[in-house]
């Protein structure tokens, strides 16, 4: 039978005194998100064919696709509505959507939480409305 004694964890606790802190000093030290992290969604207007499967599958209605011209589509993502499940990325047949490692999305201005990817620009430059 095991001997019963108090202060079983005392050794562990004392050894922690000479160890470095386990935490990262976050805002000063940035850390990389793993490869398949589900962060902010990026849209490639040139790949979109306007099938709207992403709109249909989005659990929080955060994504809207509008036709702006012949085979040209514009995408609006509401960052405040998005739950970052990346289902739209899976649903997209043409890989026009991609999840990035960006996660620092807190914002004081509500208007900045609306992101529009314009069809004209080459790589979807962010423009606030």
């Amino acid at each position: 039978m095991n001997m019963i004694r108090p202060g079983k964890m005392i050794r562990q606790v004392l050894s922690s005194l000479i160890k470095k802190p386990a935490t990262i000093k976050y805002p000063y030290v940035k850390f990389e998100m793993p490869e398949n992290f589900r962060g902010k969604i990026k849209f490639y207007p040139e790949k979109c064919i306007g099938c709207k499967l992403c709109v249909r599958d989005c659990p929080s209605n955060a994504i809207t696709i509008t036709k702006v011209g012949e085979k040209k589509f514009e995408c609006e993502i509401r960052l405040d509505k998005c739950i970052y499940c990346a289902q739209c990325v899976d649903s997209c047949l043409k890989k026009a959507l991609e999840s990035t490692g960006e996660f620092e999305l807190a914002q004081l201005d509500k208007k900045k939480l609306k992101e529009i990817f314009h069809a004209q620009s080459e790589d979807g430059i962010k423009k606030e409305t």
Partner: peptide, 25 residues
């Protein structure tokens, strides 16, 4: 404190496997 420190190991692995710490999807 110690169990939650060790829990961080499994949280990190979950994040790498699924893409998020909770709500793995």
């Amino acid at each position: 404190m110690y169990t939650w420190r060790d829990r961080e190991i499994v949280m990190m692995i979950l994040k790498k496997v699924t893409g998020n710490r909770v709500n793995y999807g």
